[in-house]
Design a protein around this nucleic acid. Sequence first.
DNA 1: GTTGTATTTTTGATTAATCAAAATCGCCGT
DNA 2: ACGGCGATTTTGATTAATCAAAAATACAAC
Lengths: 242, 242
Amino acid sequence: MPPSSTVENYLKEVYLGVGRLPAGATLLPMGQLASALGVAPGTATTMVKALAESGLVDYEPYNGVRLTAAGTRLAATVLRRHRLVELFLVQVMGMRWDEVHDDAEHLEHVVSDRLIDRIDEMLGHPETDPHGDPIPGKEGTIRERHFETLLTCPVGTRVVVARVSDQDPVFLRFVERHGLKPGQVVSVDARDEVADAVQLRGADDTTFTLGARAASKLLVDVTPEAAAAATPSAGRNAAPRR
Amino acid sequence: MPPSSTVENYLKEVYLGVGRLPAGATLLPMGQLASALGVAPGTATTMVKALAESGLVDYEPYNGVRLTAAGTRLAATVLRRHRLVELFLVQVMGMRWDEVHDDAEHLEHVVSDRLIDRIDEMLGHPETDPHGDPIPGKEGTIRERHFETLLTCPVGTRVVVARVSDQDPVFLRFVERHGLKPGQVVSVDARDEVADAVQLRGADDTTFTLGARAASKLLVDVTPEAAAAATPSAGRNAAPRR
DNA sequence: GTTGTATTTTTGATTAATCAAAATCGCCGT
DNA sequence: ACGGCGATTTTGATTAATCAAAAATACAAC
């Protein structure tokens, strides 16, 4: 009776899906859950009813799902495994940050507590994974910080990329090429509402443009302390230099 | 259509089961397969028929199963993943050799080719895992060496433990305590057929007794080269000293 | 208010893997 | 050669997860 991979995935997606909801909303519509999981709507409904039965989610027919405390705890441990594994694959195994997601997606369901603790220890109890996503604590605690995005942050100030909220390898490689990995510094030169784009200036003073959709996937830390602490060119979690 | 974990497990157990068959036999009885997998006999029959349909095994009703060439190749890649993972957990993650089996049992079904290649490379393309079991090659080739056991090897000569054919943690810890890990030297002082036991002398000249059942699980290399090459006290694949 | 549309739920089936228990088979021993 | 017993196969059901398509529902628009 450990939860099946399927159950773990549902809980994980409910957690992530609720996080992406517009401010104020707390119920994830079934359609969104179904498409995040790549299953038919009816499948999600059936499964969610079962999860509600087990006390892992609250389910309001026609309105959506939300995690209970127990469900949140479980989702957090899955996310913890996923993110620790991703960071491990980058830092220890020397894999690229854009190629670790799929392996992590599978490994998150099978690594034992003993092994995940070993990984956590080996990485020095890290707080975030290579994409800047927070790593939940051992007891299922998640500290989600709030960030601006390149679409909402003040123009002209140097900000530090904190998190990239898209796992697509193509996008991640693009982000890397432009020096936008978590930990790297950038500033918004201008923002053009009409053109739906932002003008950016990287640490090396090169400028480039990003569409609004892409810009909104780059979460940034606007506090002065962050800018001060940031390494000018190299991001965190880079592959081990030798 | 990658093979399911279940299929991989069936193929793996057919491979291992056939290996344990008395000399001459090549067909693994369904009962043995079923109990190795922990399923009811009928379940094994049903599944094996399906595997035969897919051309992975030869199935002779009432006689047993055997792998086809295709089945052998698949079994080898599963075994390769399992054994590389076990060695990785010991060498890189610093886990004990008696606690890695269960993790490997799960991981063997989910590690990607890319990751397993990375592990293989990181370990320097090892030939055997911590228990001395051979690691199949990338292309599904398995080189099984033939070994004597402490029950059949010559009395009085120094031999090198090559392989321990039992994954039980309790037994493995016992083996370790007595300096019988793969790579370590031992010699048989005497063998008593009636008492069903062997008198052993370890590298440090301590003597102890092993029952026949246990002795037969310790495969040894009796060639003089092996004895010459062996480190007197430390076995291969020991945890990284620091 | 009625109606339309998009979303959600229901329904009925399917697939993979399993079990328990009944039926069957192979073969050993006298 | 035959009876019986242990191993194997069959049978009938079950569980988890899924889909397609039909039915129901919510809500916004008119």
